[in-house]
């Protein structure tokens, strides 16, 4: 299978690999996928006010899954939570030129963003 240049770039130079303290109240964590399916994404956001000031990811998965999550962290940094929630998997597909068999990687990335935001919001609700 031939990979697009953008997938290769994210695979070779992934942006924002790493982990944040998941117990911090400013951090939202999303873990989606399952090892049996060959994809697990962990995406974390650090939020100040309503803004995502930092994002990190770790992914077990194919090159397209790594690229999708790397791109997702790049895109959500600096966005408000509401803006980040609007990101659709189809935009990731388009940006990375993912073939049909790899669309699930982009879906997973969208789910990871939403899951991290939901985790952060839940923490805030529990606080108040």
């Amino acid at each position: 299978m031939a990979y697009s240049d953008k997938v290769l770039d994210h695979y070779n130079n992934p942006r924002n690999v790493g982990s944040m303290n998941k117990d911090s109240k400013d951090v939202g964590t999303g873990v989606v996928g399952a090892p049996e399916c060959g994809d697990v994404m962990k995406l974390q956001i650090e939020v100040e006010g309503d803004k995502i000031v930092d994002a990190k990811f770790k992914t077990f998965g194919c090159g397209s899954a790594i690229a999708s999550s790397s791109l997702a962290t790049e895109w959500i940094k600096g966005k408000s939570l509401d803006e980040a929630e609007q990101i659709r998997n189809t935009e990731i597909v388009e940006e990375l030129s993912l073939p049909p068999v790899k669309i699930h990687c982009s879906v997973l990335a969208e789910d990871a963003i939403k899951s991290a935001i939901a985790d952060y919001r839940k923490k805030q609700d529990d606080e108040s």
Binding site: A34, V40, K42
Partner: peptide, 25 residues
């Protein structure tokens, strides 16, 4: 592995077989 959330969990002492994964496949 530096990029793998699974490897990280194992390093933290988590048994992956006990994790509730969020996946429809």
């Amino acid at each position: 592995r530096e990029m793998s959330p699974l490897y990280e969990m194992v390093q933290e002492g988590i048994d992956l077989s006990t994790v509730q994964w969020q996946a429809e496949h």
